[in-house]
Write a protein that binds this DNA or RNA. Structure first.
Lengths: 232, 232
DNA sequence: TGTACATCAGTGAACGCGCGTTCACTGATGTAC
DNA sequence: TGTACATCAGTGAACGCGCGTTCACTGATGTAC
């Protein structure tokens, strides 16, 4: 009905065509936040939100996949920043690991469509693999560092910190992505459930090593019963 | 180039227009398995695979969403069957819980696009919520039954079996969905990693109760160090 | 300081496509007589 | 047993749409002289 909300854009001056680049990524993120999927965000809508015509987008991105990849980059950077901020001033490595996890799940739930495109959707044809190997690296490496410190502190058995970090990542991702995909399930309070799930993941990996070398279900069950009777 | 692979379809006889219903669902599942997403499977492609024209689909499904919902129903049923099959003859509840988890992750990794549409993608507008509350119920209830047995056996502290089941589900889902979304990560052998992750989830929840009431990171860390020194 | 000109950020219009869906229809199937 | 007819599973053609992308262009910007 009313004229489309075109921002009065001033044409970028000579050297700085790159201004638009950032604005486009931001607008895409904004639109994505209110959409059901990346498919639902069209180049036209992005152009309109920025206050520019669709062909302008192609001045800055080869195609839609390239644009979405840039968004994924931005999202991973934001996620990493949120994790670092949450762990600031937290000294004990175990507490830091938990803080990272809480921040991770919190970010995902707060920006479900951003998380979805970064961590749940299929990779675009362009090798996003290489892309987020490099990028998630920031967040992932921070987590791995905390895991390594936990190993050094004797909380976890030594061994492969990468595999352990990956395992813990699946725990955080499992909660985050399932809360996003099935928000109507009776999750309860976010912080409470995240705390429970993340603690269980860390504790569970550590405890498995206490029981023995790759214990089976029955060994786990026996150990639990023994512990419970001993402590009561 | 060559004529489309039309199956020579015989027209359904009078009472049995419903034959097509099942064939359409099966064809959709088959096409989905080779696609990147549900959007990439078109009504036209489904019709073609069944050997029928596109409007025929609408004789059996109100719209595309309804068709996809039917597929989700079928997928959940298959998943449940796979879990039950895997746990057949497994008597101890902890082992059964692990068997369920292994089967769950195995199914997801084996049928990634089916798992994606059922458990990772956003719900269609039609209230799939109600849909899969009823349907996943079969699989979910089987898991909950195993959890309850584990509680009865003293492996887990009593309390809310539903919340615990949900927590364990996030563990299985986390591994499954992350392996699907990021298959290029260094996961290692499926059975090994699934065993590790699922065991950690179960053990972790049980162990948290051993430590105390909702223990914080530092309590967990202290407990782990104490256990480790005691056992060495 | 003033003017001609090259640059290049951004435009307007259109392309071709594949999609979900609709609609009037056809013709095999089974039934009534 | 044979024929007229109602039923309804499935068809053929088309609809309108929104999409990603292209292409020849415009006109403000900054520079050279």
């Amino acid at each position: 009905m009313s004229a489309p909300a075109k921002k009065a854009r001033r044409r970028a001056s000579r050297g700085s065509g790159e201004e638009l680049h950032g604005e486009i990524v931001e607008a895409t993120k904004r639109l994505l936040a209110d959409s059901a999927s990346a498919d639902a965000v069209s180049i036209r809508a992005v152009a309109d939100a920025v206050g520019v015509t669709p062909p302008s987008i192609y001045l800055h991105f080869a195609d839609k996949d390239a644009l979405l990849s840039a968004v994924v980059v931005a999202v991973f950077a934001e996620l990493d920043a949120a994790m670092l901020a949450a762990a600031e001033g937290v000294d004990s490595p175990m507490a830091r690991l938990c803080a990272y996890g809480q921040a991770y799940v919190g970010f995902a739930v707060e920006h479900p469509e951003h998380y979805r495109i970064a961590a749940m959707d299929p990779c675009p044809r362009t090798d996003q693999q290489a892309l987020d190997e490099v990028l998630a690296d920031s967040a992932f490496n921070h987590m791995r560092a905390a895991v390594t410190e936990c190993i050094d502190a004797g909380y976890f058995a030594g061994g492969d910190p990468l595999a352990l970090t990956l395992d813990l990542w699946t725990a955080a991702h499992g909660l985050a992505s399932l809360m996003i995909a099935k928000p109507y399930l009776p999750w309860g309070d976010l912080e409470t459930v995240a705390n429970r799930v993340l603690r269980a993941a860390a504790l569970g990996h550590a405890a498995a090593d206490l029981i023995g070398d790759d214990p089976g279900p029955d060994e786990v069950a026996d150990w639990l019963v023994k512990q419970r009777t001993a402590s009561s």
